[in-house]
């Protein structure tokens, strides 16, 4: 056990990253924050629409999209990757619809069938084309931009000034675009999430909004995929929104809390990863889980603790009087 959990050195874990190693850890934390924020903002709407697991499906099926994009374009260019992910996201959405509209299989099973098949296809494609000459498609490719390597990426230089590593800049653009899109289409998203019938009567194309949300989800997922991998993305999608849902009933407040959750979990996760010497992306999710559990237990209006006090202490008193 001693070997498994390294000794806790406050200086090394909590002070050093902010003083001596800031140019490395600052970028990691920033990247973690940006990924969680972008995913969490989109994830809020997934939770409202009860489509959290569609997010799970798309985060898996991005893999074959990337594989096909690599094979077709023979390069790791950002454009090809984004196009591949976008196509994969749309194909997944269409497949899920097709299976549950055209047969008696329910939507949950349709989701399960669609994404596992696509993911399996992606893994097989990567295995077949790995090692063959020409296509540089091996584990490194999917690993490319793993969150701890982010600070080592070549920086974006504009006019001789460095703006930070490429993945961070790209993720920042995606996160900013996500925030802008949500601000711009706030009314449409709000109405179609809460009351699709009202949305239709107001002249909002709910189907279009659905597909647009799914497409943007795949864009966010593919940009996050580079740093956190396929499965942890789902945590980034759901955790912030779920925590925010527990704490507030108002969507603007929820979106704000999502950003706060993203920041706190990124910082805490980085420290946790430093202490345990494990995957930072995993540690950030674990930190996010801790935040969620705290909200679940200590939430003043209907947290577990509040409920316990109510049933054990307050209710008997009220009933007695």
């Amino acid at each position: 056990m001693n070997a498994l959990i390294p000794s806790f050195d406050f200086q090394r874990i909590f002070i050093a990253p902010w003083t001596s190693g800031f140019e490395t850890f600052g970028w990691i934390v920033l990247m973690g924050f940006l990924v969680t924020a972008a995913c969490g903002l989109v994830g809020n709407f997934l939770i409202l629409r009860r489509m959290s697991l569609v997010g799970d499906a798309i985060s898996h099926s991005v893999l074959p999209g990337l594989a096909v994009a690599f094979i077709l374009s023979q390069s790791r260019s950002t454009t090809a990757m984004f196009l591949g992910a976008l196509a994969a996201g749309i194909v997944t959405t269409v497949l899920i619809e097709l299976i549950h509209r055209k047969s008696r299989v329910k939507q949950d099973a349709a989701i399960g069938i669609a994404f596992t098949s696509l993911f399996a296809l992606g893994v097989i494609l990567i295995n077949l084309y790995a090692g063959k000459g020409g296509v540089d498609l091996d584990q490194e490719c999917v690993l490319y931009g793993e969150i701890a390597f982010v600070p080592l990426e070549p920086p974006v230089m504009i006019g001789g000034q460095s703006f930070g590593p490429t993945p961070v800049v790209r993720m920042a653009l995606v996160a900013a675009a996500t925030a802008l899109l949500i601000a711009f289409f706030y009314k449409e998203l709000l109405v179609s999430s809460f009351d699709p019938a009202l949305a239709v009567s107001l002249g909002i194309n709910a189907t279009l909004i659905h597909y647009a949300l799914m497409s943007w989800l795949s864009v966010v997922v593919v940009s996050a995929f580079e740093s956190v991998g396929a499965i942890l993305v789902i945590a980034m999608l759901i955790l912030p929104g779920a925590t925010a849902t527990l704490l507030s009933h108002r969507l603007p407040v929820m979106l704000g809390l999502t950003l706060l959750h993203a920041a706190v979990s990124a910082v805490l996760g980085m420290h946790l990863a430093l202490w345990l010497d494990c995957s930072p992306a995993g540690a950030m999710v674990v930190a996010g889980t801790v935040l969620f559990k705290s909200a679940w237990i200590f939430n003043p209006t209907d947290g577990l603790l509040r409920r316990w006090f109510w049933t054990r202490l307050e209710k008997p008193v009220i009933e007695a009087t």
């Binding site: 959990i5 939770i47 009860r50 799970d56 942890l232 779920a242 889980t289 209907d302 409920r307």
Partner: peptide
């Protein structure tokens, strides 16, 4: 049963958080 979250979000939460803990443990091992 104790929060306002629906089943899909609950499943996603459990899936992701358990898996993250698992990933951390596997990398530590």
């Amino acid at each position: 049963h104790t929060t306002r979250l629906k089943e899909d979000a609950a499943l996603g939460l459990v899936l992701a958080s358990f898996f993250a803990v698992g990933i951390c443990m596997v990398t530590m091992i």
